[in-house]
Design a protein around this nucleic acid. Sequence first.
DNA 1: TGATAGAGTAAGTAGTCACTTACAATTATC
DNA 2: GATAATTGTAAGTGACTACTTACTCTATCA
Lengths: 194, 194
Amino acid sequence: MPRPSQIDVQRKKLLPIVCQTFSELGYRRTTTAELAQRCQVRENILYRLWPDKKGMFLAAIDDVFQSRAEKWEQILVDLPNPKLRVERLVAYEAQHQGELGFYRIIFTALAETDDEEMRAALIRMYRQFHKRVSRQIRTDHASDRDRLPVSDAAWGLLGLATISNIIVELNLLGPRQRKQMFASVAQALVRDTV
Amino acid sequence: MPRPSQIDVQRKKLLPIVCQTFSELGYRRTTTAELAQRCQVRENILYRLWPDKKGMFLAAIDDVFQSRAEKWEQILVDLPNPKLRVERLVAYEAQHQGELGFYRIIFTALAETDDEEMRAALIRMYRQFHKRVSRQIRTDHASDRDRLPVSDAAWGLLGLATISNIIVELNLLGPRQRKQMFASVAQALVRDTV
DNA sequence: TGATAGAGTAAGTAGTCACTTACAATTATC
DNA sequence: GATAATTGTAAGTGACTACTTACTCTATCA
């Protein structure tokens, strides 16, 4: 038996480049030729790693939550005080909103929800985000009895993050205004009392 | 001078069909051939009304706010009591969220914001929505001194509407849960006191 | 009524791009 | 070192589709 397959390794190696490309160019303008060039391989190599272009895109969707969650862990690792944790994450998001361009992957996918696999990937992603955000609110505001159920507040925060990405992208508000908006809306959603 | 041009008339006549098609199929899967067929004309006729496919799509974006705003006026026309107005709109949106599929046009456009015309059309649209929502909150809660600035609350509501559309599309919550979530988050954003 | 331009028909075309195929080179196992 | 699979190279292809062209028909107004 000759040569063990390196497919998984290479998939993992190229995924960030694939992600980055889809984030920058969106789905339509990302050609398989462009992907191959950026990955410094030939096109058919990509087709050995994923069944088709859509497969590459699905892999990118699955990576969105993954990489964001890792970032969050990094931020919280040396922050034991629960009181500050949500605020810290909110501040981080307000600051770095849209920096990685991942929202573009999501918007593209959202315009293609007729496709069952797209839908499934999106559902996975949103569920993960919602669960993660809910957990954070719950553990850090454990003693408070919120008027707004934690789960609803979490959806509200996801909505806030979405519109905030849009605001950045379209320059609808200046950075300062946007951060302030983000903070005050987030507070309105998470606080039980002012 | 023979035959006055009917171009504007026809543009107006076909726009709803164009909108509907982009909403159903998204940008990629909407071919000019499909558009022509649904409009019951030949392709080149469409190209006399708009310069290219993108032009048709831009027209669709511009129509999104327009038709939504008309709907809102319709709802409010026989509702003089300010106290009920915002609540009524919120209830309407919670109920009919995503029904027209317009969100798909917006998501598609959001994935193509490198294009200056796309950006411009989106900016116009969001500005209009924000202005409209702010006005509604302000007039109907005139006497309240909100902790959350009206403008921020309006952005929050746009975010809520966005995530709510996503939730419908992906079936992330059942209808009842989603409506309840919508209501309580909206309330948290608009109320000054519980 | 006839000149003029708009409205409609039908076919075509050029370019793009996802995906394939055929083949050569490499490398881990026996 | 023979085997057999994996990895890499290079070229091609077929389908799709945005957009065009060349033409005929029709309605208006002087």
